[in-house]
Design a binder for these strands. Structure first.
Lengths: 365, 365
DNA sequence: CTGTTAGCGCATTCAG
DNA sequence: CTGAATGCGCTAACAG
């Protein structure tokens, strides 16, 4: 038994399909009140559900928003996804999810799939990359996006533009002040701590990571501190853990150099991990090596992931309004259609974050 | 400039649309190698992307899987979503996301929306509820699901069947042994701890919560312990926090009764929170009241949320293969079509969890 | 093996 | 204000 169609509803109501369509969906013209009721009644007596595919075909617009993330189980993306979902709901649209592990080739596939479904807009949340291994994928992705935009699609990208994407109509970037915020974090940290700074970053070429590293170094410079050493590892918890292990070894080594008992003589280090999840991993590594925070090392992250806020010692970090980022990116990809003229998308709706110092970077006391 | 169509490709290749369709999509019959190449070349010279809406209309199947969760930012659902996504990828389908905050009325809307999009299957991940305020919503949801199934849709539900749903063809439930596992947890805890047990549960009527409470009590009974008192609050972090606050007050009160200095004379309590997120909230509350875990109270959760594993003291819990749950629920809603006969969906593919005791429930030492 | 014909379910011209 | 006709882009029966 197939779902009932508009035609069936019309027949039952004794009207034409056109009329039925007009009453059941918001048409410009309002049919007569009496006949409208008949149609509506017939509709739900049959349990009529409009076929969105057919509607989409006829109107060429699908009510779909495509969302691309690296990993939906990563709390960073999950939070953004929630914002996207909210915005979608406001627009009475549904969100189509694609996860790509950050591979531009997969992202290109996702864009093509969204285009095939005639998604009204696409939101790309994952960090852009300029790594050489991603060159080709990036080019393909850029081309696919370009085509999508040329066909009237809207895209909203969080953070940085896709590498190589021509600033087409309908292509919007929501800037995130990663660099500025990281600089502020460095300045605040430098003001209260005497520690030597070390950075745990993601792979070189990951924009989000690179921005935060650059900003942090700049802030350090502004505070009259030397640039920090940078350890590179995976942009996730285990990357943080590995780097943390290496740092722990270093801390222990420098201590024994200072002579066994003079435990306080070597300077404490302050670790800046470019995101909270890496910071937590690093903290776990230090702990597993018998080191304590903030006694033996201080540590700060970035993002202010909600689920991690109960972690002890409380993690110093930079708060980012993740949910709002998702919302804004989605809205930016829904505004004026192509040919709006000025190329300006109304108020830039800038994202603002906030340095949030907590126990993990207190002085050793 | 609209996207190019199959007809355009066909014209450019000098063949009929039917032939073009046959080569570009997997048809049973294979066109001649020479002509196939011409079509393929024409296709990507035009940047042809098939219109999934039109395909769906013609084939009446959309390649879409609908996923319903309470909140995508909740790590429990995020983990399941990842599993669903994986399974979807295996089937070369995309996932449509709907979040409902657990309201059956919204879930009904979501099902209708999925039905409108002709989703091939629907996965419902959120806990079922039998609360009176959800009665009406449940009935509507059940009716909507029933209709969806009758029209050939497949649905997979995690945990418990939707209240009132008639076991239609295409309706599959993936059981999660919440009760058994909670019982095992109680037994293991009772074996190593002398504590008095207290349970922090979600609102009465939430199946997942109720199952875990019931199981825990049963385990307690089996171990010769009296039933635990049950505190009810919201099924999330703040619910846990509030309940934790109440418990902290109780702990302090009973201590002062025992006389100020005899801090060890009143028995320690062991808190079982029905999920990890609530447990973390409760732990935070205790801590904020100056209590320490496991010294002043022990605590255990349920789910073994990955992001929470670095929490200290490490949380005792019951490990659940969340990702696999998502995968299996998705697969169960993709197997044999309607009319398969036996009503049996092959191997029950049972979910198994594992009691995982960690520091938060060690003896006070 | 290919081309032609006919819908899939709906929105939207047009005519009445 | 209503009904009949046309087409969205594609697939699946037919015919050649």
């Amino acid at each position: 038994m197939a779902a009932s169609t508009l035609t069936e509803v019309a027949r039952l109501a004794g009207v034409s399909p056109a009329t039925a369509s007009r009453v059941l969906n918001g048409s410009a013209r309002k049919p007569g009140k009496d006949i409208a009721d008949r149609v509506r009644q017939a509709a739900d007596s049959l349990g009529y559900i409009p076929n969105a595919q057919a509607q989409g075909l006829a109107k060429s617009s699908s009510g779909l928003i495509g969302l691309i993330v690296h990993d939906i189980a990563d709390p960073y993306f999950a939070a953004i996804a929630r914002g996207v979902q909210e915005a979608a709901r406001e627009q009475r649209k549904m969100v189509l999810l694609a996860t790509t592990e950050g591979a531009p080739a997969d992202e290109k596939e996702a864009v093509a799939a969204f285009a095939a479904r005639r998604a009204d807009s696409i939101v790309i949340a994952g960090s852009r990359s300029s790594r050489s291994e991603d060159q080709e994928g990036n080019a393909d992705l850029a081309a696919e996006l370009d085509r999508y935009c040329r066909n009237g699609g809207q895209v909203g990208v969080v953070g940085h533009p896709v590498v190589g994407a021509t600033a087409a109509d309908g292509y919007h970037v929501l800037p995130v002040p990663n660099e500025e915020l990281a600089a502020s974090l460095a300045v605040e940290l430098a003001a209260s701590l005497d520690d030597d700074f070390v950075i745990i970053g993601g792979p070189e070429g990951l924009f989000t990571s690179d921005d935060r590293i650059r900003g942090f170094q700049r802030g350090l410079g502004k505070a009259g501190r030397p640039a920090a050493e940078v350890l590179r590892s995976a942009f996730n918890r285990s990357g943080g853990y590995e780097a943390g292990l290496a740092l722990a070894a270093g801390i222990k080594a420098s201590r024994s150099e200072d002579g066994g008992t003079a435990a306080g003589s070597s300077k404490r280090i302050c670790i800046f991990a470019v995101n909270d999840v890496m910071a937590i991993g690093a903290a776990a590594a230090l702990r597993s090596e018998g080191l304590r925070i903030p006694r033996d090392a201080s540590i700060a992250g970035f993002d202010d992931i909600e689920t991690l806020r109960d972690f002890r010692p409380a993690l110093s970090t930079v708060h980012l309004p993740l949910e709002e980022i998702g919302r804004l990116a989605t809205r930016s990809a829904s505004g004026a259609g192509p040919g709006a003229g000025t190329g300006d998308d109304g108020p830039p709706s800038a994202i603002t974050g906030k340095v949030t110092l907590r126990r993990s970077t207190e002085t050793a006391a």
